[in-house]
Structures are given as structure tokens and as C-alpha cells.
Design a protein around this nucleic acid. Structure first.
Lengths: 130, 130
DNA sequence: TAACGCTGTGTAATAATATAACATTTATAA
DNA sequence: TTATAAATGTTATATTATTACACAGCGTTA
């Protein structure tokens, strides 16, 4: 079987919703919002989220248990994510910084471990909240 | 009131347990283990964990919802953490890499956000699991 | 010393996040 | 067309974390 190119109905519904928000959404808030479209159970949401994360359409903000759309149109990068998170207003922004990404991509520890993925979250106060 | 230097009974019990493990422990597994010491409820565990994280004695592995002791004897660094995580055996190691830490500490985005904390998790396969 | 603020304790209840198990359906590949 | 991988729908349950309340201990300061 080939890699699936087109999303299924549930996946589309959920991706649409996440893409309309510029901030991360939580699974059960997504569930609440898509009930009118016939998605009734948590598992239906979690399954779609899992797939969307896998193909890089969305990312999980681990420290917040929330999901945000990847704005990078070319993004197949489920594998290398950097976010800034305001600890006051909880605003989350994905960071695309070539130099930093390069640095992280090239990082080697002294254990001989080969990395294929990383997730970096910066915390602080955004301009509005300072 | 001054900053508390000494840990309370519950905090000590839980820190001891976490320090004896070289791998991250989950809250409810901690709870199970400390029941014999008179800690009966999840909240007692979560409260101690929160404090221990705050003072830098332990770190939370966000992607795993688990807690690991900080091995760095000087560690007051609840604020700057880097881990490597094996996706096969789930082995977790804290990384101390001066150059990388420096790079992350000095990172500035273009939003004027001031960071006071970051958490970086690398994923891959450890030597044993390759 | 009494009153206050702060931190921690203990307990019960509940909220929030996530997965297991099962039967069925749809899509793709051989 | 048949085998298989991927997705669906549903119910139940597991796991992770917090709210709310009553109270205890300690240091500060009035």
C-alpha cells in the first residue's frame, strides 16, 4: 500500500478545525467542536490527530497536550519542531530558525545515539505580557 | 518567609524514590511505591513533584509524563533541560552539552520574546536498540 | 504574644487526557 | 478478486492531573 495522499473525512474535518485556529487546540475541545459533524467519540479524534501528527500537518505541544497546525507549507517535519510559549497568555508560535535547526539537526551526543526527531519548547513572556 | 532549604517529609520520600531510579517514573507508579510510607493520594504525589520540579531536583519528561532526577549536583536548572529518549526501550538520559546549552540560552526569536526556560527532547534509537 | 501570610498536609471527589478491545468498512496492491 | 493495510464507529476503561475544603506548622511583624 502506498502512502496515503488524501486525508479521510474525519482527518479533514479535524485538520480544518485546527488550521482555522492559530493557537493550539486540545483534543476534547476539538471533540466538542466536531460533534455536529458526526464525530462522537474521543478515539475518533485521537486517531485523526495521530495520523495528522505523523504526516506533519499538525504538531503536538507536549507541555500543553494540545495540537497546532504547521504553518510551513512544505512541512513534512513532524520530526523537528521548535515552539515558543508564553507562560502568561499561553500564546504559542512555531519557530523556523535555520541556524538553530541546523544546530539541532547536527547535534551528536557522546552515547552514539542516532536521533531522528526532536522537539524544543521555549517558555517566557511574549511582548504583550511582559 | 525565606526560601525553604529543607524538604518536607513527603518531598523527601518522593525525591529518594526518584533518585534511586535512573529512569523516569510516572506519578501513579510513584504513588504505588510510596503507599507503604503513608502517602495515600495522587495529590500528595503531585504536590511533591511540583515542588521538586520547581527547585530543580527533578525534571519532567513532557512527552512521557514522567519524572527523572537531575544528576547534575549543582542543578538548580529547572529552566534548561535537554534529554535524549530512545523510542524503542524508552531509556532517557539528560544531556549536558555546553555548546548546545549556550546556543539555546542565547537564542532570540524575531518576536521580541524573552525566554526564561526551555525544554528540548531528542528522540531516536540508543546503541542497544539500533 | 497574637494575628497574619505562606507553605504544606490529608482526604474525597472529580476533571482531563488517552487507550484497549471488538466488529465492521473502505482503499490499495498483488 | 482476494488479501491486506488503514480507517471507522462504539463502548468501556485506563491514565494523568486538579479542585475544593479543613486544618497544621512556622516565621514575621504589629
Amino acid at each position: 500500500m502506498q502512502k496515503q495522499e488524501t486525508l479521510t473525512k474525519n482527518q479533514k474535518i479535524i485538520l480544518d478545525l485546527i488550521e482555522k485556529s492559530d493557537q493550539p487546540l486540545k483534543a476534547y475541545s476539538i471533540l466538542f467542536d466536531v460533534k455536529k459533524k458526526g464525530i462522537n467519540a474521543p478515539l475518533q479524534v485521537y486517531r485523526a490527530l495521530k495520523k495528522l501528527v505523523k504526516i506533519g500537518k499538525i504538531h503536538k505541544i507536549e507541555s500543553r497536550n494540545a495540537f497546532i497546525a504547521c504553518k510551513n507549507s512544505k512541512c513534512q517535519i513532524a520530526k523537528a519542531t521548535i515552539f515558543s510559549i508564553c507562560e502568561s497568555c499561553e500564546d504559542v508560535t512555531e519557530i523556523h530558525d535555520h541556524k538553530l535547526s541546523e544546530h539541532l539537526r547536527d547535534f551528536k551526543d557522546n552515547k552514539g545515539m542516532k536521533y531522528n526527531k526532536y522537539n524544543l519548547e521555549f517558555f517566557g513572556l511574549c511582548k504583550k505580557c511582559v
